[in-house]
Write a protein that binds this DNA or RNA. Structure first.
Lengths: 245, 245
DNA sequence: CGGCAAATTGACACATCTCAAAGCCTGTGG
DNA sequence: CCACAGGCTTTGAGATGTGTCAATTTGCCG
């Protein structure tokens, strides 16, 4: 299967988990023009303040939204897994308020905005599904904000692991209870809003519970239910329910 | 002017700041069915986990998104000013992942989802503008997350004030350099992710700079530019640029 | 085997939270 | 018009969490 086909397949899987995707809609997605490109870990795929004329759909690897502050601190505001339409919102926002960075060896597919605008003219239901993608993104942001503002470092980390676990499952990238989590602890600290040192200690705390193992980029969740309880994870915000939208 | 008309007027003002709104589009907005309702400060307008069949547009007062955790901590993840389509995203998300609370004496207008769905079928450009509203919401979330994760309490607070200042200006609710900011310090602490005590000290720090005054619900910004510099505020994410979307 | 990035550790400084009390407004009823 | 209640704001003091700095260890890749 070509990367372009794979992109459509993953996106469809993502959408199908939330509503029915008709064959016509799927072929509309297939007919979008696509440019495949790969990036190495650490590379900036799209830059803050740029004005892209395409949106990118992640096919393989993991990426993050990254906001850089003047004093060179940074915050990662989201993680992406394959099948995520990473910067779909650039279609509307035009100027990027953050950059997209590769956390891994990454493959993406770029889709011209014109093609997406055509969808908004011709396929109202599919448009709503794409809109839904960005709305779920925002819901994830709210959850993250709540975590950073009000949860302990350990439950914040556990929360992220629970979330990525489920998102990996949706796209069929969960091998039993193992998935790829390629962040360095420095990157993780920028995601959690902690210092690297404290992140390291938090990781050790979580390891000590024996609920997870994490070596290199391999994350193993030994007891998902217990991890959910530990972090008081409530998956409502991921909208993993298929219903008319 | 009726409250329903006022709602349309404010929303149009909001949208016009980002793109051209045609007379036809404006009258489409006017033709949406609307139920006006008022709420007292502290009241929950929409509850977490409910499944609304209408979306609400704020006409007067201020509201917030509120996430309640199991241990009764809470995080406010957004503030809304008049003209904000507060839970437009419920159209797609269906189940609320947070509640909407009144921070003030509040007037809202409820619009049936069916009417909004009709817009997605009939008015692609207007649909994109509504989509844009939710995308800006997400951009504000990212900014807030960055603030909570990486900025000092004082600059976090200053950041919020700068943002609300501009958003008030957009809808013509800025009287010179004064606007209504009806939060209690307890509510503010849930917004900033701080304890009430520390929030109080942070407010005092900011007052000591003489850049703002805040008494009761009256916020006065004495030197907006200096406040922006102080908090390193970059308004890009608010998308206050009119261009084709 | 050497070199480099990432992970880990220890010690100390500082920011923030918690608890508890006091002061200050504002609206209400007498 | 005054007294009072209740909520909000403010203060102080001590406990705890988190950050910083700097050094050490580990693991990977050439």
């Amino acid at each position: 299967m070509s990367m372009a086909d794979r992109a459509v397949e993953l996106l469809t899987r993502n959408l199908s988990r939330r509503d029915t995707v008709s064959p016509e809609e799927k072929s509309l997605l297939a007919s979008l023009r696509k440019r495949v490109q790969t990036f190495h870990k650490g590379v900036e795929i799209i830059s803050q303040h740029s004005r892209p004329s395409t949106s990118c759909l992640l096919v393989a690897g993991m990426t993050a939204r990254s906001v850089l502050l003047a004093d060179s601190r940074r915050q990662l505001t989201a993680l992406h897994v394959p099948g995520d339409f990473v910067d779909l919102h650039a279609l509307l926002l035009r100027t990027m308020d953050h950059s997209i960075v590769a956390l891994d060896e990454v493959t993406v597919v770029f889709v011209p905005h014109e093609d997406l605008i055509a969808i908004t003219r011709e396929a109202p239901h599919l448009t709503r599904l794409l809109w839904l993608c960005t709305a779920i993104d925002a819901a994830i942001h709210r959850e993250m904000m709540t975590s950073i503002g009000r949860r302990s470092p350990a439950s914040r980390l556990a929360q992220v692991i629970c979330e990525i676990y489920l998102r990996m499952e949706v796209i069929g990238q969960l091998a039993g209870n193992v998935f790829s989590f390629p962040l360095t602890q420095t990157e993780l600290s920028d995601l959690l809003g902690l210092s690297v040192v404290h992140t390291n200690r938090t990781v050790q705390d979580l390891r000590a519970t024996r609920l997870i193992s994490w070596q290199g980029s391999t994350m193993t969740v030994h007891d998902f239910d217990a991890l959910c309880r530990f972090s008081r994870f409530d998956p409502t915000y991921l909208n993993l329910v298929s219903e008319p939208r």
